[in-house]
Measured scan of single mutants.
Amino acid sequence: GLEHMADEEKLPPGWEKRMERSSGRVYYFNHITNASQWERPSG
């Protein structure tokens, strides 16, 4: 619901949600550090 939507907005600075086109899996990418990970970043 709306709570989940708001929660997605609160990623740490630099992080954004991305989708891997080949598999459709969602991952997280940090455009500041060029880091990427499957787990939702905390902090």
Rank of each mutant, 00 (worst) to 15 (best):
G14C: 07
A35R: 14
R18T: 03
F29L: 02
S23E: 04
K17I: 10
M19W: 13
Y27G: 02
G24M: 05
R21D: 11
S22P: 07
G24S: 04
M5R: 10
E9L: 08
T33Y: 06
N34R: 09
R40P: 11
H4D: 14
A6K: 10
L2G: 14
H4I: 14
Y27T: 01
M5T: 12
E3Q: 12
S22V: 11
V26Q: 06
R21I: 15
G43Q: 13
P13A: 08
F29E: 04
G24H: 05
P12K: 01
T33F: 04
G43R: 09
D7F: 07
S36A: 11
H31Q: 09
G1H: 13
R40E: 05
F29Y: 15
W15Q: 00
E16D: 03
L11Q: 02
N30P: 00
L11E: 15
G43A: 12
K17A: 09
Y28Q: 00
N34I: 04
G24C: 09
W38R: 06
E20D: 15
R21K: 15
Q37S: 06
Q37P: 00
N34Q: 13
K10L: 11
E20G: 06
H31T: 15
G1I: 12
N30L: 02
V26Y: 14
A6T: 12
K17D: 01
E16I: 08
P13W: 09
F29K: 03
G43M: 15
G43I: 13
S36M: 15
P12T: 02
E16Y: 03
E8N: 12
R21G: 12
H4Q: 12
N30H: 04
E8I: 10
M5G: 10
L2A: 13
G43S: 13
Y27K: 03
E3K: 09
E9V: 07
R25N: 07
V26S: 06
S42W: 07
L2K: 13
E3H: 10
E3Y: 01
P13N: 07
E8H: 09
F29D: 02
S23I: 04
P12D: 02
R18I: 07
G43V: 13
V26F: 13
S36K: 14
Q37K: 03
E16R: 03
S36Y: 10
G43C: 15
E3R: 09
G1V: 12
R25W: 02
E39T: 07
E39S: 05
Q37I: 04
A6N: 10
T33Q: 04
E39Q: 08
K17R: 11
R21M: 14
H31W: 14
G14R: 01
W38M: 07
I32E: 09
Q37D: 02
M19N: 06
P41C: 02
L11I: 06
P41E: 01
M5S: 13
W15F: 02
S23G: 05
E39W: 06
E20F: 06
F29M: 02
G1Q: 13
F29S: 01
Y28H: 00
H31E: 09
E8C: 15
E9S: 08
Y27M: 03
P13T: 07
S23L: 04
Y27Q: 03
Y27W: 06
R21N: 13
L2I: 14
K10T: 14
R18G: 02
H31Y: 15
S42T: 14
R18W: 03
S36D: 03
N34A: 08
G43T: 12
G43P: 10
N34K: 14
W38P: 05
S36F: 10
K10P: 15
W38S: 07
Y27C: 07
S42F: 09
R25M: 06
